[in-house]
Structures are given as structure tokens and as C-alpha cells.
């Protein structure tokens, strides 16, 4: 009985790890870095986590989690409520549709895929915000943000790989 309880708790902790990492990345994304000009290229922090875990463990990233992370991101950043929820859901749709193609591929290919996803996310973000504001926003900040977000992927990718290998159990 006790063994089963601990086993269940262990499994829940392992399965909940991607969700907790996404939550941590969303919070980390708003930590003040006091770096000049950082704001105009600030990376879309939770995107790397979404991409990695949807490719490798889509079963642990349900649509509801993606929605919740998007809403939290909106709440924290003061963006239009629902805007990033929509952006992240569209990213989910894109990555999920290519999941079989990307899963198990070498890291460089995965990184290349993330450049496309990051570009797609920032373009969607720009479209949603322009629509909501009723005016065309400048496109350059979105471009820089997408490049910076994609450039940081190896750092996050390496971290997720370690967590994936050593903590999150592979599917049976």
C-alpha cells in the first residue's frame, strides 16, 4: 500500500516535471535582468520548453497546460489577456503536427526546427497584438525577438535533455 503510494507520487513528480519547468520558465521570463536594451529583444522564454517537451513527450504537455501557461504569461507581462494563450496554442498545433518528423532527430535538426517555430510564434504574436491594437506594430522587434529566442535554444535544450534523461521516465 505504502509502496504503491510512493510509486504513484514518484510517477506524478516525474510526469509533472515538464509542466513545472514551463511554469518556472514563464516566471524566469519576467525576472528583471537590468540589461540595457534587453526589453526590445527579450526572448519568449516558455517557447523553448514548449517545443522540447511537445516534441519529446507530447503526452505530458496537454492542451490545457499550454493554455494555462499562455494565460499566466499574459497575466504577468501585462499583455492583452488571451494573446499569448492563443500564440502558444497555435505553436502547439504546429509542433504537434510535425512531432513525428522531429522526434528522435539529431540536435542540429531540432534547433533548425526551433528557428521556424520561433519565427512562427513571433509572427503570430505580432499579428495578434496588431489586430488587438488596431494598428500595425513595427515588425523588427518581433524579428529580433524570434532570432534571440532561437539562439538561446541550445542552452535550454541541453538542460531539458539532462532532465529528460535522468528524471523524466521514458514512456514504457
Amino acid at each position: 500500500m505504502t509502496d504503491r503510494f510512493w510509486q504513484k507520487l514518484d510517477l506524478a513528480a516525474r510526469n509533472g516535471t515538464p509542466g513545472l519547468l514551463l511554469l518556472a520558465m514563464t516566471l524566469l521570463g519576467v525576472v528583471p535582468l537590468q540589461a540595457p536594451l534587453y526589453a526590445s529583444i527579450a526572448p519568449l522564454m516558455p517557447l523553448a520548453g514548449l517545443y522540447y517537451w511537445i516534441v519529446h513527450r507530447p503526452d505530458l504537455v496537454p492542451v490545457s497546460l499550454v493554455f494555462a501557461i499562455g494565460v499566466l504569461h499574459d497575466m504577468l507581462t501585462g499583455a492583452i489577456l488571451g494573446a499569448y494563450a492563443a500564440v502558444f496554442l497555435l505553436v502547439y498545433w504546429l509542433v504537434r503536427s510535425q512531432q513525428r518528423v522531429l522526434s528522435g532527430k539529431p540536435f542540429l535538426m531540432l534547433w533548425g526546427g526551433f528557428f521556424v517555430v520561433s519565427g512562427f510564434a513571433c509572427l503570430t504574436e505580432w499579428t495578434v497584438i496588431s489586430l488587438a491594437a488596431g494598428a500595425l506594430m513595427p515588425l523588427e522587434p518581433a524579428l529580433f525577438r524570434s532570432l534571440f529566442t532561437a539562439a538561446l535554444f541550445p542552452l535550454w535544450g541541453w538542460l531539458f535533455l539532462q532532465v529528460h534523461r535522468h528524471f523524466v521516465r521514458m514512456p514504457a
Partner: peptide, 8 residues
């Protein structure tokens, strides 16, 4: 928290 991004 610094919530500044390209659009906010």
C-alpha cells in the same frame, strides 16, 4: 518583475 518585451 520586468515584463518588458517588444510590445509591452
Amino acid at each position: 518583475a520586468d515584463n518588458s518585451g517588444p510590445f509591452v
